[in-house]
């Protein structure tokens, strides 16, 4: 392994306590968003104001961790100033990089703050090296976060075609659609990840007990119905049960989450630079637990990649906080497709 190669553990922070939990438990980088629609986890009570962000950066830097700003939604004309100000703020606070999806914003960031590193967000939908090289050539991006749709073989092929560092999702929620190319949420609710930083927003959700069972609706559309002995899940609309030609099933995706612990040696072999944990909407306790498991796993893998195996204690710890959900390797494992 090259002496300067290091797989960075990139952890989510929806609040200052979550940021501290991530840093204290071994995160190399923490990513966060401001408290508005400039980021893709625009939920009430979540995210940072300027003062909190400054404190967070000081805390992380004092302990050797980096802070990345998620500015990963697409500004519409009326909100341009808000996104621009967020970039200026990130530069002012001394954040280490900005994660962007919108090319117009990248151009602004590059021209105004040439010293700040740019990462291409997963919302930029770059699934091939020609696309990544486009952003590299025009905006000098240092890193690209890949959508959760490529098989491992495709990631390896892509890595060979670009000088840009790659960051992959390793654990947490699983988008079945190509990020940045899904308008299902706005079709139903008017708000999507691209235009508002939300998917299946809580304000559009209604739960109703009926004689047919517990029903979850999104702006009136029935997403799922649960019998008494079934666990009800949040009605993310691609994870509901629908009927196709007389069969009712999870037509798009089961309510599973992504877990790629077993791929760690392979990810390190092809020199993936960032391992991203999803979940800025999660609690500090969750962030602490996931970070600590992944820190341990990465350290074990660095020590001896050939002998690496997933420890049952890691799986148990992650299983406990994933609320008994199933885990999957997602698209990294080709049969998932």
């Amino acid at each position: 392994m090259l002496p300067d190669y290091k797989l960075e553990l990139v952890c989510p922070a929806g609040s200052l306590p979550a940021l501290k939990a991530a840093v204290d438990n071994g995160a190399d980088c923490v990513y966060l968003g401001f408290r508005d629609d400039t980021n893709a986890r625009n939920f009430t009570g979540l995210n940072f104001d300027a003062a909190n962000a400054r404190t967070g950066v000081e805390y992380a830097h004092a302990k050797g961790a980096k802070v990345l700003l998620a500015l990963n939604t697409y500004p519409q004309s009326h909100g341009w100033e808000r996104w621009k100000n967020a970039i200026d703020m990130a530069a002012d606070i001394g954040m280490d990089a900005i994660i962007l999806a919108d090319p117009g914003l990248m151009q602004y960031a590059m021209k105004t703050h040439p010293q700040i590193h740019l990462h291409l967000s997963v919302q930029g939908s770059a699934t091939n090296y020609e696309a990544i090289n486009f952003y590299h050539e025009h905006f000098g991006i240092r890193r690209a976060v890949l959508p959760r749709v490529l098989s491992f073989a495709q990631v390896e092929e892509l890595a060979a075609g670009t000088p840009v560092e790659l960051e992959l999702f390793g654990f947490g929620g699983l988008c079945v659609m190509v990020e940045g190319r899904c308008s299902l949420s706005s079709y139903v609710t008017g708000e999507s990840p691209n235009n508002c930083g939300v998917c299946s927003p809580p304000k559009a959700v209604r739960w109703q007990k009926t004689t047919n069972g517990l029903e979850s609706r999104l702006n009136g559309v029935l997403i799922d119905r649960y019998a008494d002995d079934e666990n009800a899940g949040y009605p993310t609309l691609c994870k509901g049960r629908f009927e196709v030609e007389g069969e009712t099933y999870y037509a798009m995706e089961e309510p599973t989450s992504l877990n790629t612990l077993e791929l760690l040696p392979e990810l390190m072999r092809i020199k993936v630079r960032g391992l991203k944990i999803e979940g800025r909407q999660r609690s500090p306790a969750y962030v602490a637990q996931v970070t600590s498991v992944w820190r341990d796993a990465i350290d074990q893998c660095v020590k001896n990649p050939d002998a690496f195996s997933v420890r049952p204690s890691w799986t148990a710890a992650l299983g406990k906080i994933s609320e008994g959900q199933q885990h999957t390797l997602g698209a990294y494992n080709r049969p998932w497709k």
């Binding site: 090319p103 117009g104 939908s125 770059a126 020609e130």
Partner: peptide
Amino acid sequence: DMGAVHRLSGHMPFIAGPYLNIYNPQT
């Protein structure tokens, strides 16, 4: 796809398709 834009820019004029996520005047 931006990969297509990368191949086309500087070579020939093109049409920017509906999936390129052009949401603002700057882009």
